[in-house]
Simulated scan of single mutants.
Amino acid sequence: MAPQLWLLRHGEAVPHDAKPDAERELTPRGRRQADAAGAALAALAERFAACYTSPKVRARETAELACAHLNIEPIHEDSLANGFSRVDALTLLDAHADDAHVLVVGHEPSFSQVVYDFTGARVDFKKGGVAALRASRAAGELIVLTRPKELEALSRS
C-alpha cells in the first residue's frame, strides 16, 4: 500500500505588511481554522506517523493547534518554509513505513504544486484547508480535498 501525504495549509495570518513574513502569526480566525482541522482529522480517526511543519510562525501555530487533537508533536522541517516540492515530500515519506500517513503543514503555492506533481490535479488550496494523496515515486492519487468550512463541520461531528 502506498503512503499517504496529508497537506494542511496554515490558517489565516496577519497581513503581509504587518511583520516580516517568517514572523506573521495566525489571526483569531486562523487559530479557529487550525483547531477545526485538527479536530476534523481526529474525527476521521486519522493516525499520523509524524507531522512536519514549516518553521514560519503561522505554520508552527497551525501545526501545534491541529496536533493537539492528534496526539503527536510537530517536527520543524525547513524544506516546508519555501519551495516544498514532490522530491521533498518523497524524502519525508521515505523515513516512514510504506503505509504511513504523514501530515505536513506549510504554504502555497508549494502545496498546490505538490498535488499537481503527484496527481496532475489543479486544486484551489484554501488557508486552513487539507488535501490528502496516495503518493508513490511514479504517481499519486488525490483522495481528499477539503475547505475550512468542511473541516469545521467535520470537527463538530
Rank of each mutant, 00 (worst) to 15 (best):
A81G: 14
R29Y: 03
S136H: 09
A131F: 00
A89N: 02
G128S: 00
R122L: 14
S79A: 12
K149Q: 12
R122V: 15
A139I: 14
H107S: 04
E150S: 14
S110C: 02
E46G: 12
A68Q: 13
E61S: 08
A13H: 02
S157R: 13
A153N: 13
E77K: 03
G106V: 04
A89F: 00
A39H: 00
R24Q: 00
V87K: 11
L142S: 02
H101D: 15
V87W: 12
G11I: 05
L133M: 12
T119L: 10
L103M: 02
A66F: 06
A131Y: 02
R9S: 06
E61I: 10
H16S: 11
H10T: 04
Q113T: 15
E73P: 04
A135C: 08
V104K: 06
T91V: 13
M1R: 15
D124S: 13
A121E: 14
S85L: 02
T91R: 14
A40D: 05
E150M: 13
R31N: 10
D117P: 11
E46P: 12
G140K: 07
R47S: 12
D17S: 07
A13S: 04
P109A: 01
I75L: 13
W6G: 05
A18W: 05
P148I: 07
A2I: 09
G128E: 00
L90M: 10
V102A: 03
L5I: 08
E150H: 13
L8I: 06
G129R: 01
G106N: 04
R24T: 02
F118M: 12
Q33E: 07
V123M: 04
E12F: 01
S85Y: 04
R47D: 12
A36T: 06
L154T: 12
E61A: 09
A68I: 15
E25H: 15
F125P: 00
A18P: 04
R29M: 09
D94K: 10
K56N: 09
H76P: 12
S110D: 08
L93Y: 08
S79Y: 05
A39Y: 01
A68C: 11
R86Y: 02
D21K: 02
L65S: 04
G106C: 07
T27M: 08
E150F: 12
K126W: 08
F84Q: 05
A39I: 03
Q113L: 12
V102T: 03
H16M: 09
S136C: 11
Q4W: 07
A45K: 14
R137V: 13
E46V: 14
L41E: 04
S54E: 08
Q4F: 09
E46M: 14
D35H: 11
L145G: 06
R147M: 12
A34L: 05
A18V: 09
K127L: 09
R58C: 05
A40M: 07
A36C: 05
I143G: 01
P3V: 10
A39M: 01
R86N: 05
W6Y: 09
A81I: 11
